[in-house]
Nucleic acid binder design. Structure first.
Lengths: 186, 186
DNA sequence: CTAATTTAGTTGTCATAGCAACTATTAACG
DNA sequence: CGTTAATAGTTGCTATGACAACTAAATTAG
């Protein structure tokens, strides 16, 4: 499948592509993205942006999740649902799905749980009996009101390693990337 | 549980904390982080950084995942394992776990799958018979060599909406935040 | 040199995510 | 109008992730 050419070079044929590979680690290349110092036919995972983004996001979410979980036994998904309900009382499951990007089946089950715990209340919409209108219960409101400052405090602490200008920059770059990634989807 | 004080103010006692809440939406506050325009006792989920980070990361990972999955039936986890093996041939499961942040039980099962598909090869370490030494098989190498340019191309396309300077800025901020988040963990 | 501790990796269990199939209600069309 | 299509939400199935308990090998200590 691979053919040795010279000391440090090999040709690989794959799905119609001919790929010439250099095996000498550290040899630089014209085709490598400038942000990566390694050779183009080897991936530097630790510098691969999607990977780093995922690691950071998991770490950040994980730390908050711990707070929600320890104190209120809420999962991130459950908290997010309550968070949008705190802003938009009386919206439907479908609207929550749009706002939170939570898939509707996951949403449906999470809502069931929150209903069982009486943290939210659900009524059927008058005008369209398929839709439901969901709001925080009194207990839900109270929990919400306690979590909000915790969340802000956490965000604040996390961002404390950035200057005000850097925060804005970071925030803007995230928005731009998110919009661009959105446009790249099938 | 809550006591109405004046028109738009309420006191809530929760877990020993006394919280004075303002219910008028849009009223500003001294304690709200500058990056949020909403009041401090309501959370603007769409502007909450951990949330946006998670959305972005999921979107980005999801798009790549599709490529890996369609063409090679590899999950992100499986691809990450192969990615580190492409860089560090012959390392142990434990070392992979450190490098990829994948939990060892998940790793163990993912490795089993990759072994079944003959994408990787495992031998027992001579000097320590608990450890195993894992490397890409010939097939694995070939798959790896085909995925690497795809991954770079994707990263490049994703980042094409940022200037070179912005990329570096973004990259640096991610590193800083990741390090800081790390230090915040229990 | 044996007993206790640490380390590498596997397996069991449970919760959650993602996808597709399904029900019920409403809207659209001919 | 009555049939068909679209929408809101639920449920089933499977894969994956997190956590703890477990096995086997190696290291440490008495």
């Amino acid at each position: 499948m691979t053919t040795k050419l010279v000391a440090n070079t090999t040709i690989v044929k794959l799905s119609g592509y001919l790929i010439i590979q250099r095996y000498l680690k550290g040899s630089d290349s014209m085709t490598a993205p400038s942000s990566h110092r390694s050779m183009p036919n080897q991936l530097n995972l630790a510098r691969f942006l999607p990977y780093r983004l995922s690691i950071l996001s998991n770490k950040v979410s994980g730390i908050i999740a711990q707070t929600y979980k320890d104190k209120f036994a809420l999962s991130i998904t459950e908290w997010r649902i309550m968070a949008v309900l705190g802003e938009h009382s009386g919206i439907s499951a479908d609207e929550i799905s749009v706002k939170t990007q939570i898939e509707k089946s996951i949403l449906s089950r999470a809502i069931s749980k929150l209903l069982n715990r009486h943290l939210i209340v659900r009524t059927i919409a008058e005008d369209d009996r398929r839709r439901s209108e969901i709001r925080l219960s009194d207990t839900g409101q109270t929990v919400y009101q306690e979590i909000v400052p915790l969340s802000y405090a956490y965000e604040e602490k996390l961002l404390s390693c950035l200057s005000s200008q850097e925060r804005h920059q970071f925030s803007e770059l995230i928005d731009r990337l998110a919009a661009h990634a959105e446009s790249m989807q099938p």
